[in-house]
Design a protein around this nucleic acid. Structure first.
Length: 386
DNA sequence: AATGAAACCAACCGCATTAAT
DNA sequence: TATTAATGCGGTTGGTTTCAT
């Protein structure tokens, strides 16, 4: 076996760390900081290589580490994060305060993987019927945390179906069904069947069969997935509104959404509210009301990262809050046009034949950043030949 | 109580990326 | 720009502990 380059140069001890060594390392770092890891063992009086010191500090000695077994919440979080992020242990560990990537990785290999395997075996019928996973709060957590690097990024459905102008009908979205038009009383479905276009694009297509029958959409799931993977900071996760109310056909009006109020119709100039009051049904049920004042005056406030963070800490891992876009551009009532969204382009009105763009500019997402994971070979770069 | 198997986990290794020169 | 060193990450190893027989 080869040695670390830093370990070739000197006699270094290997194997488990003794309490004396730990004490030396703690004392040194607490006084001087680690600085350059290569110089740490020499300055701390340790017969170890810098890499070994770093590992010992990061995985075992540094303050704030949580020892002991993983809670069921942590386990659930890891499973969900792993589903989204794959083997990016350091990324996963960032969502588990006090846990190291090594710890998470070990836990995964020794416990979770087996449990998942056995549970998959038990749930085979469900998989066959392709019942999609609901969007969990964990995804929200992940999204929000990721928004630390992409503060303005909002993930959104790649396709918002045309919304009937009739205010008595509305569109709902659910992870299972995707978008669905809900008819008002005494209404009949006039023919907007739930198609695969409407289905939640965030769902992972598991089988060849599903892929074959996946009717092409302006932005396919695969595209979204690749695009999001490409923009590593906001991985394969799309958050959706639980309810999109009816949108007036008048293009001068638009719909806004805020955590407190939920969706709201904003009227254009010279318009009057024609009677779609903001009801509690429209309000985002998952919002966090931060102050008495806000509650009293019902003033919409944006959810800040701090609030989210506190909420996440407070609830340990599963807050009940969904992050939603602050603005949905006007949706033309004409069913031949539709709105698409992509992380790169933002919202875009797709016009039907013989239509001209009337208003909605393409919103460029300013937060796209190149990362090492952009490279297509990333998925394979760690494939090793040992 | 003895023993082998399985599980666990700290630590190591090699590679990729980043920073410094 | 090229080279080298440092750092970070994910995969793997191997020693220790726990469990089952």
């Amino acid at each position: 076996m080869r040695r670390h380059s830093c370990c070739n140069k000197q006699k270094v001890k290997r194997g488990l760390w003794s309490p004396e060594e730990d004490e030396k390392l703690i004392n040194y770092i607490s006084i001087h900081g680690h600085g350059s890891w290569t110089s740490v063992p020499k300055l701390a009086g340790l017969q170890r290589c810098g890499k070994s010191c770093r590992l010992r500090w990061i995985n075992y000695l540094r303050p704030g580490l949580k020892r002991g077994s993983f809670s069921p919440q942590e386990a659930a979080l890891i499973i969900e994060l792993h589903r989204i992020l794959g083997n990016r242990w350091s990324q996963i560990a960032k969502h588990l305060p006090g846990r190291t990537d090594n710890e998470v990785k070990n836990f995964w290999h020794t416990s979770l993987k087996k449990k998942l395997k056995s549970s998959h075996a038990l749930n085979l019928p469900d998989q066959q019927h392709h019942i999609p996973t609901p969007i969990t709060m964990l995804q929200v957590d992940l999204e929000l945390q990721h928004n630390n690097c992409c503060p303005t990024m909002v993930n959104f459905p790649p396709l918002i179906p045309a919304v009937p102008s009739d205010s008595s009908s509305y569109v709902t979205w659910s992870p299972l069904v995707g978008y669905d038009h809900q008819l008002g009383p005494n209404q009949h479905d006039i023919g907007h069947p739930i198609s695969s276009e409407d289905a939640n694009p965030n769902l992972i297509i598991n089988s060849q069969q599903d892929q074959q029958h996946h009717i092409p959409t302006p932005i396919t799931m695969l595209q979204v997935d690749l695009e999001l993977q490409h923009n590593f900071c906001c991985p394969t996760m799309v958050n959706f509104p639980p309810l999109i109310p009816a949108v007036p056909s008048d293009s001068s009006s638009y719909v806004t959404w805020s955590p407190l109020v939920g969706y709201d119709h904003q009227l254009g100039p010279n318009q009057h509210d024609i009677g779609h009051p903001i009801s509690s049904e429209d309000a985002n049920p998952n919002l966090i009301i931060n102050s008495q004042q806000d509650q009293q005056h019902h003033i919409p406030t944006p959810i800040t990262m701090l609030q989210v963070d506190l909420e996440l800490q407070h609830n340990n891992c599963c807050p009940t809050m969904v992050n939603f876009p602050p603005l949905i551009p006007a949706v033309p009532s004409d069913s031949s046009s539709y709105v698409t969204w992509s992380p790169l382009v933002g919202y875009d009105h797709q016009l039907g034949p013989n239509q001209h763009d009337t208003s909605c500019p393409i919103i460029i997402n300013p937060s796209i950043k190149e990362t090492p994971y952009d490279k297509p070979e990333f998925a394979f770069q760690n494939a090793r030949t040992q």
